[in-house]
Design a protein around this nucleic acid. Structure first.
Lengths: 239, 239
DNA sequence: CGCGTGGTTGACACGGATCAATCGTGGTGG
DNA sequence: CCACCACGATTGATCCGTGTCAACCACGCG
């Protein structure tokens, strides 16, 4: 029933491969972007490859330019428990290299990916005389902190149904073409479950519960939001 | 049985009140520290006061110079559910002001405190020509990210006993004076429980379980670690 | 002395994990 | 072309951890 094919209208946007920086750090001076370009090293990996492992030396920041990467904790018996799945341009390892010089989680590609490694020593040297770039970096980390705090809060205070509702609300983007917001799940459901801190079984049950209550309609990897208001209420009711 | 008095040998260290920056940001050039001093505004609050509330405008970073502050989610029926209790010099709000300009959690003093507010616009201006300071700030946020990721991981993959064991291990510092590591709980047990993502009842049971198994000895707010090795094993066994 | 606060203990309920079986889909090789 | 298999999702049955509720204890204070 569930195919993993992407919808026809979700054709890959023609990304400017050589300029991931705006998406990662916000608007930059051209010279700052050029400095990063000079520093970064492009790396390509096939699907299923390990990007890095917990405890590895982390001599460089790692950015995901294109593709899909799962970050989490590798467990011998049940594979990678992803606490985070990254798409398109985003940071895979932004903070860890600065602290211990070691990665704190495992990362594995889920599709063919293009990475950009930014060696930390070089970056430090560049930042030493590029204050705006430093600021952008600090802001990127600040976003990361806020995101993590929100997730921590959700995990501690919301039950599985509320977390799913909140996730659906966050994922949903209004589309001009459709009356009701529709979203295509871009990851395996087990990875979504993992990100939400629940098992695939529980996710399945929650999805069914929501659709039985008429809040959403699910067919395979397509979810249609029928009652965004009720969904939002479920998401914010901390109980 | 449990008094909240601090042990006699934990006399307050004579902190250099005017220079919290090294503890917050690491070693700085004297001129950078002076710039921060010029910017920061000292603020004193009595015990039990609100430092800020979720959703408040956050026009300044907030540092805790001295005292104790609990950060968490205020709930009308059961008070502040602290997800974090801060001591001595540390950041209360480091990241949130950068992002939305709003605080993302509630903060409340638990003792008389001295705060330092660092207004963000001024800080941006200072950072624009102080690259080293920017770097230190980025590093401070990086530490925050790593800490949060670790907590997220613990919360998702470890049970209550393992989280307590991990916390005890992390809190324990070897003391030359004692044969066995001893630690004084510096917060109410309910706040410790809250930080560990469990209820006070569960914390109490876990403490008893550990002491019945001979791993620790508890008397009031004093915890003696009897078998650090077994405790560590419990903490790392993700099960 | 009574009262408020904080901790401990016990009984109980419930959410969600676990285990196991089944189904649908897609890829592969005879 | 179809049997076969691997993988992921779904569903049901069951179990366990931990939250909830309530009672009780210990301490400090007015």
């Amino acid at each position: 029933m569930d195919t993993f094919a992407l919808p026809a209208d979700a054709a890959p946007a023609p990304r400017t491969l050589e300029a991931p920086w705006p998406a990662l750090l916000g608007t930059l001076h051209a010279s700052d972007a050029a400095a990063l370009d000079a520093l970064a090293q492009r790396r390509e990996l096939p699907a299923g490859a390990s990007v890095f492992r917990r405890g590895d030396r982390a001599p460089a920041l790692v950015a995901l330019v294109e593709g899909q990467v799962a970050c989490g904790a590798w467990q011998a018996d049940r594979g990678l428990q992803a606490h985070h799945v990254l798409h398109g341009p985003s940071w895979v390892s932004l903070a860890a290299p600065w602290v211990e010089g070691r990665h704190v989680s495992d990362a594995q590609t889920q599709a063919d990916v293009v990475l950009a490694d930014v060696p930390l020593p070089g970056l430090r040297a560049v930042l030493a005389h590029r204050p705006v770039l430093s600021l952008r970096l600090a802001e990127a980390m600040a976003r990361e902190v806020v995101r993590l705090e929100a997730r921590l809060h959700e995990l501690m205070h919301k039950d599985a149904g509320a977390r799913l509702a909140a996730w659906l609300c966050a994922q949903t983007v209004e589309r001009p073409g459709h009356r009701r917001p529709v979203l295509q799940l871009a990851e395996r459901k087990r990875d979504i479950a993992s990100q939400l801190g629940m098992t695939p079984e529980t996710l399945s049950r929650m999805m069914r519960s929501l659709s039985e209550r008429g809040l959403i309609a699910v067919r395979g990897y397509t979810v249609q939001v029928l009652d965004a208001q009720a969904l939002q209420a479920l998401a914010t009711n901390q109980a």
